[in-house]
Amino acid sequence: MVSTRELRETEFLRDFHESELSDLAGIAAHTRWKEGETIFHAGAPAAALYLLRVGTILLCFPNGRSMPLRDEGHAVGWSSLVSPFRYTATAVCLSDVRLYEFSGRELYRLIQMNALFGQRLMQKIAQIMEQRDRYRRGTPVSFGRD
C-alpha cells in the first residue's frame, strides 16, 4: 500500500494536489527489481508508468544510445500514456531498484476524471519526452570494429 505522504515527497509529484495524490496512491504499487533485471523492453506494449524511488536504471534506446537515471523521482514508461502505447526504450536495472508502479489504464481513467490533473501530468510527460527525444531520435552511430 502506497501512502499519499510517500508520493508527496517524490519530486515528480511535488506540485500535485492532495486529492490527486490520494487518487494516485490508490492505484500505485511498490515494486522491487534486482540488479540486471529488465523492467520493460523497447517495442513492448506499455502498460505502466514507473517512478524511481531507489537505485539506478539504464534506459537503452534501439539506436544504441543510453541514459542512466539515478535520482529519486525520475519517471520511466511515459509511453503508457502516449500513443502508440509501446515502450521506446529498454529499462535495465544497474542496481537493486525500488519503484512506484502506476497502471497506464488507471492513470488514463484519472486523467479523464480530472482535466486539470490531466493537464499537469501531460505537461510533465511532454517535458520527459522532449528530454529523451534527443536520445531516441539520434541516428545509430557505428564507431567500432565489433
Binding site: 502516449v82 502508440p84 509501446r86 501531460m122 510527460i125 511532454a126 519526452m129 522532449e130 527525444d133
Partner: peptide, 11 residues
C-alpha cells in the same frame, strides 16, 4: 502516431 509510430507530436 497512427501514421508514424515514431512521430511524437505531443510536446
Amino acid at each position: 502516431n497512427r501514421e508514424d509510430p515514431g512521430n511524437y507530436l505531443l510536446m
